[in-house]
Simulated assay, not measured.
Amino acid sequence: MNERYPFLISIPHGGILVPAELRGLINLSRKEIIFNSDPHTRLLYGFNDRVEAVVDFDISRVFVDTNRPPYDYPPRAQDGVTKVITQDGTPVFRKGQVPGREVIAALLKNYYYPFHGQLTRALNTLPIRIAFDCHSMLPKSPPVRADSGRPRPIFCLSNRGDLNGKPKTAGGLVTCPPEWLQALARSFQTEFEGEGKVAMNDPFRGGFISVAHYRRSRVPWVQVEINRGLYETPDRETDEKRLAELRERIFSAMANFWDEISG
């Protein structure tokens, strides 16, 4: 197939930059910022030459998380659009330096809304048939979560539904048809046969990006999470060859899924 696949790829957590508005307030080292972002996802999902659109984000999710509602910020939320603590419980900001409403409003204006605007323009102007919101996850649930220490699947595919991709309640919202999510899971399981489980809506059910843009456009959305254990050592080292191999296999799983359901 020579033409581009009708996919929108969203990569909201691959950036590692600190916004200018927060410089001098941060309690984290560069290494900690990278760990608490989604390292290497811009490479793993960067299918720019093969899909209709790729939208990614330079700023670390620690400081501006585009997969959270814009009204979720401190002190109301510690894991909202601007984080107060990391996934291992480390304070993000120096003592007494947590940004207030005016600074967060500037972060939303300068970074958050432009990212969502790019997604909206792609959905409005390009022949997008399905969108993937692409992430990475730690091999085990981190200390800040209720299921701390629980091992995770190699991939989690989410549409806000149940473990089979179906609505959790009668008439409940799902951001992608259950049959599509099941077909996508089969395609990933085939591609990664023998390497681990591909799960649906466990441990993640999909976040703000998928829900908000599905509701507005009605284009199906799937949140994709890859287990960092597939490409990181326990010391967080990576192999460029392994990353490139995984990139091709992820795209193969997505493309084979689409060829099946659109054929």
Rank of each mutant, 00 (worst) to 15 (best):
M1D: 13
M1V: 07
N2H: 10
N2P: 13
R4N: 09
S10N: 04
H13P: 10
G14N: 09
V18D: 01
A20E: 15
E21K: 14
E21W: 13
R23S: 14
L25V: 01
L25D: 14
S29I: 15
E32S: 13
L43N: 00
L44I: 08
G46C: 06
G46E: 08
N48C: 05
R50C: 12
R50L: 15
E52Y: 01
V54N: 13
V55W: 07
I59A: 08
I59D: 11
V62R: 11
V64I: 13
N67A: 02
P70G: 02
P70N: 01
D72H: 02
P75Q: 13
Q78D: 15
D79H: 09
K83G: 05
V84M: 12
I85R: 13
I85F: 11
I85N: 10
T86M: 04
Q87P: 06
G89S: 05
T90H: 13
P91T: 05
V92N: 10
Q97G: 05
R101T: 12
R101Y: 12
I104D: 00
A105N: 08
G117Q: 06
Q118D: 09
Q118I: 01
L119E: 03
R121Y: 01
R121V: 08
T125K: 11
R129N: 03
F132A: 03
F132Y: 02
L138D: 11
P139V: 06
K140L: 06
S141R: 10
P142C: 01
G149N: 04
G149S: 03
R150I: 04
P151D: 09
I154K: 00
L157M: 05
L157D: 03
N164E: 14
K166S: 15
K166G: 11
K168S: 08
T169F: 14
T169R: 12
G171C: 11
L173F: 08
V174Q: 02
C176E: 02
W180I: 04
Q182C: 13
A183G: 10
R186L: 12
R186F: 05
F192Y: 06
E193W: 02
E193M: 14
N201G: 06
N201I: 12
P203R: 09
F208G: 01
A212D: 10
A212L: 11
Y214T: 03
R215Y: 03
R218P: 06
W221H: 15
I226T: 14
I226W: 02
N227H: 03
T233R: 03
D239M: 01
E240I: 09
K241I: 12
L243A: 00
A244I: 00
L246A: 00
E248M: 02
E248C: 01
M254P: 04
N256V: 01
W258L: 07
D259H: 08
S262Y: 09
G263V: 03
G263P: 07
